[in-house]
Amino acid sequence: MITVSNLKKEYGTVQALKGISFSIAEGEFYGLLGPNGAGKTTTISIMSTILEPTAGEVNIAGYDLRTNPIECKKTIGVVPQEIALYNDMSAQDNLLFWGSLYGVSKGELIKRIDEILHLFGLHERKNDKVKTYSGGMKRRINIASALLHQPKVLFMDEPTVGIDPQSRNLIFEVVEKLHQSGMTIVYTTHYMEEAERFCNRIGVIDSGQIIAQGTLDELRKSSSIKETIAIAFANLTDELFQKISLAWPEVKRFDQTIHFFTSNSKNDLAKIILNSNELGLDIVNIEIMKVNLETIFLSLTGKQLRD
């Protein structure tokens, strides 16, 4: 459904994308993960045709992005990171407007709006001005506005940032339904649990390059890290953390807790405890975690996803 080949984007001397390539099959749920400034939004912007690439090719549903941008646009739906709605218009009027831009007839549009508002649990408030909505409700309308023309491909850029749990769950349900209906979805997120829950395949992007790609299982297998030992200390200082880091290079500090990334927790746990005792560190809690996307990401990029 989507083929991206050697995609480059330069802003003066800054290379935002350094020749990334990936392909996404029809009906696939593809997660694009990366820290801030990694190139996720640039990639989405190019695929959404609002940004011209410096080099490379993008093909969506058989249409070349450079030669046939309008057809590409008709094929895709975009849920931007920011809520982009007209606050002084009602939800229904907003949806009528956004849907009309895609050439959907008014009769058909009204029918679809009715269905979508039911789907997102906002039918009762369809005539209220958007400015009276909560952040979560606005975000639901923001997503709904990208679905009115029934796109084959949906780009979702951080669709659940800053919303209440109720709205998040509703969005998750809708996203799952859309995926089940056969829609191809490209999803960027900071939330690992979302990526782990939805994505068939994940591309990890860092500094303008795809550094790993595959299913969650494939990424787990390719990672040298198998487990994480999380130890909480009572008296961890910067100086003591420095000393620990010298002995254990693959560590990450979270306040009074250190995550030790290891391929053999049974062997390493005893050594870590011994080492901590020698340094005078008082252990409060120990937890051993299986490898997850967060740890894979950390091992691949050396950064946390929210960095």
């Binding site: 959404s48 045709t49 609002i50 309008i70 646009k73 008709k74 895709i76 975009v78 931007p80 920011e82 809520i83 982009a84 709605l85 007209y86 606050n87 956004w98 831009l101 895609y102 050439g103 506005s145």
Partner: peptide, 14 residues
């Protein structure tokens, strides 16, 4: 400023 211009650019409109 409100992001709707960007969203308009996503649409098939020139």
């Amino acid at each position: 400023q409100e992001g709707t211009l960007k969203k308009l650019l996503y649409s098939p409109m020139h």
